[in-house]
């Protein structure tokens, strides 16, 4: 007789999306969404995503009218500033059959928060169902068994929070249940790869969008702590499914001039070599 509780926003991922095989993908129009800061500051992450998907037989299209998902405004609480940006996103990607993006955070924005801005608009519900983060697209939609290649480094996986708890790319340490990680699953088949054992496997890095500026002291303290954990664990290459966390962490690393390298997971999977220098 108990009333059903309103589903937690983070539990809304269970929805029907038919798995597609590589043969079907050929005929599909797949849109690539490259987050604004990746487009401007980390173009190689976008290129790596593109090349990785193409190497798997998937042709993707990058609609050049795209800009941003609107998350910076939304997370600051500026809802009327968010709406037109979300509407633009819908216009740009409405006609694609799948949308792929190398950022868990931006996909979580579309999936969990667009309702507030777009509910009722034609194509909104479909957009939410067809937009995927890169790792989940590879694992859940394409069912890629594993990427061939070699990566003889000790890799530290940073579990970006919105991918982790928003999209459930991996099991989070707070919950009880089967443990899994779609990120690690994709990296594991690489030859020679080993993984860092962290003391705190999924603590936030402290980026948090505008939080990194508003709460600079806490943000950087969190970043320093996260890197110390990786240093203790012997991480050579720090990776994540979100470049924003890595932008913050590599910003600290470069100031400290340490020799830990930072790569987005798409760059590792696309066979990029570890960058020289810092």
């Amino acid at each position: 007789m108990l009333r059903e509780p309103p589903a937690s926003v983070y539990n809304q991922t269970a929805r029907f999306v038919p798995a597609i095989t590589l043969l079907q993908v050929d005929k599909m129009r797949i849109g690539l969404f490259v987050p604004c800061y990746v487009d401007q500051f980390y173009p190689d992450v976008g290129m790596a995503t593109l090349e990785l998907l193409e190497s798997l037989g998937v042709t993707v299209e990058f609609p050049t009218a795209q800009t941003c998902c609107g998350q910076p405004m939304a997370n600051t609480g500026c809802q009327s500033e968010t709406r037109p940006v979300a509407e633009k996103f819908l216009r740009v990607f409405r006609d694609f059959e799948r949308v792929v993006c190398p950022s868990g955070s931006c996909v979580a924005m579309v999936r969990h928060h667009y309702g507030q801005y777009l509910e009722g608009q034609p194509g909104y519900r479909e957009l939410v169902a067809k937009t995927f983060e890169l790792c989940e697209f590879l694992v859940d939609v394409l069912h890629v068994p594993g990427i061939k290649g070699s990566f003889p480094y000790r890799v530290g996986i940073h579990q970006s929070c919105h991918g982790l708890r928003g999209l459930r790319l991996a099991s989070s340490s707070e919950r009880v249940g089967p443990t899994f990680s779609k990120v690690r699953q994709l990296l594991e088949p690489l030859e020679g790869i080993t993984f860092s054992q962290l003391e705190r496997p999924d603590e936030c890095c402290g980026f948090g969008g505008t939080f990194s500026i508003n709460e600079e002291a806490v943000s950087c303290h969190m970043g320093h702590d996260r890197l110390a954990d990786h240093e203790r664990a012997g991480t050579q290459v720090l990776t994540a499914p979100d470049m924003s966390c890595l932008m913050h962490l590599s910003g600290i690393l470069r100031r400290r001039r340490t020799n830990m390298h930072v790569m987005h997971i798409a760059q590792i999977l696309a066979g990029r070599s570890v960058p020289n220098g810092k």
Binding site: Q40, F41, D44, G46, F62, I213, C220, H248, R254, R255
Partner: peptide, 22 residues
């Protein structure tokens, strides 16, 4: 620049992704 107190800004690439794509 609150970002830059303890962090470097990202290095600026010559071309954006969309320029490379084009």
């Amino acid at each position: 620049n609150a970002w830059g107190r303890q962090r470097e800004l990202p290095e600026t690439p010559k071309r954006s992704f969309r320029e490379l794509y084009r």
